[in-house]
Amino acid sequence: MSTILVTGGTGTLGRLVVDRLRAADHRVRVLSRHVPASDLSSPVDLRRGDGLDAALAGVEVVVHCASSPRGGDDVAAGHLIAAARRAGVGHLVYISIVGVDVVPLPYYKVKLKVERMLAESGLGVTILRTTQFHDLVAQALAAVAKLPVMPLPAGVSGQPIAVEEVADRLAELAAGRPAGRVTDMGGPQVLGFEEAARTYLAAVGRRRRIVSLRLPGKTYAGFRRGGHLAPAHAVGRGTFAEFLARRPADRG
């Protein structure tokens, strides 16, 4: 079996990818800023790049899950690409987001830049774009639900997908050959934010008045047009309501 390195391997998605690859008997290394050094894991800050050569020694495949909305993904990708070339890595799998080429959110623009860097890197590359994870949508709604009134962007929908299903797909792609950009992966339902908020409130036993707001700017317009959705690729199975039902600790 291959030796596979997973960046961001302690994160919400990365740790599930690690579990699946190990269950398939691959030799897996975890790369993260938050793990102790061992023969299977490396504490590396990709934005600095120190220690990457040692972490990638003997690695055949990289699954790049590390990302930060605070910025620096392009810098991190540059370090990773250079080190992967030096190490002779044959396949780099990257998780991206549906709509990075349509919605001008700054974080999305950086993700698109990373896609282009990978495509031009000369490495064997596979890029998977997915819609939003259930976890992210729930976190956003939980934050807004702390207010007496829940303000939501008018006319915007989401298409949340189970992170476990994305991990399954990434593990499958990592075991295969480089495929370029593969088919997008979307959740099973396109769900208006108001409906998602009501589903969340019912699940946690709260009451809030929901207020829909029209917002200025091109980013909001991109979301209203549904550039971040993939209704033609609604391959996910687990719904947002089912995800919330599995989280009894969040109630109240």
Results as ranks from 00 to 15, higher is better:
L123V: 01
L141A: 02
V166G: 01
A119I: 01
V163C: 11
T199A: 11
T131G: 04
E165T: 02
V125S: 04
P106L: 08
A175F: 08
L105Q: 13
E120C: 05
V110I: 12
V166I: 14
R177F: 05
P106T: 03
V137D: 09
T131F: 07
G158H: 14
P188Y: 06
R209W: 15
Y220N: 09
S157G: 10
P153L: 06
G186F: 11
P153W: 10
M185W: 15
T126P: 07
E194S: 13
Y220G: 02
A221Y: 14
P160Q: 07
R214K: 15
V149P: 01
P104W: 08
R129H: 12
S121T: 02
Q132E: 15
E172R: 10
Y220F: 12
E120T: 04
P104I: 02
V110Q: 14
A142G: 12
A162Q: 05
L215C: 11
K113H: 10
A138Y: 00
L191G: 02
L123T: 04
T126F: 08
T130K: 08
A203E: 00
V137Q: 03
K218I: 03
V211N: 00
S212D: 14
P151S: 12
F193W: 13
V110S: 12
G124D: 03
K146H: 13
K113W: 05
I127P: 02
L213S: 04
F133W: 07
G180P: 01
P106F: 07
A143S: 15
L118E: 03
R198A: 02
A140C: 14
L147T: 01
L105K: 10
D168F: 13
L136Q: 07
D184N: 09
F133Y: 07
G186H: 05
A145F: 12
Q159C: 01
V125A: 07
T219P: 13
A197M: 11
A196Q: 06
S157M: 08
P151D: 11
G124E: 06
L201E: 01
H134N: 05
G205P: 06
Y108D: 03
E120D: 15
A179Q: 06
A175M: 03
A174K: 09
R181G: 01
R169K: 15
A202N: 15
E164L: 13
V166H: 04
V163D: 06
V149S: 09
V125R: 00
L136C: 13
P148Q: 13
M150G: 03
T219K: 13
V110P: 00
P151K: 11
G176K: 11
T126L: 05
L147N: 01
R169V: 02
L170D: 00
S157K: 12
L141K: 01
Q159A: 05
G217I: 03
L152Y: 04
T219N: 12
V149K: 08
Y107Q: 03
V163A: 00
Y220D: 07
M150E: 01
P160N: 05
K218N: 09
H134Q: 01
Y200A: 02
L141N: 07
L213C: 10
E115T: 01
L191A: 01
L213W: 12
P151C: 11
V103G: 03
G124I: 08
Y108K: 05
A142N: 10
Q159T: 05
G155D: 10
R181C: 04
G217E: 11
V103N: 06
G217N: 13
Q139A: 15
V137K: 09
G192F: 09
G205K: 05
A174Q: 12
V204F: 04
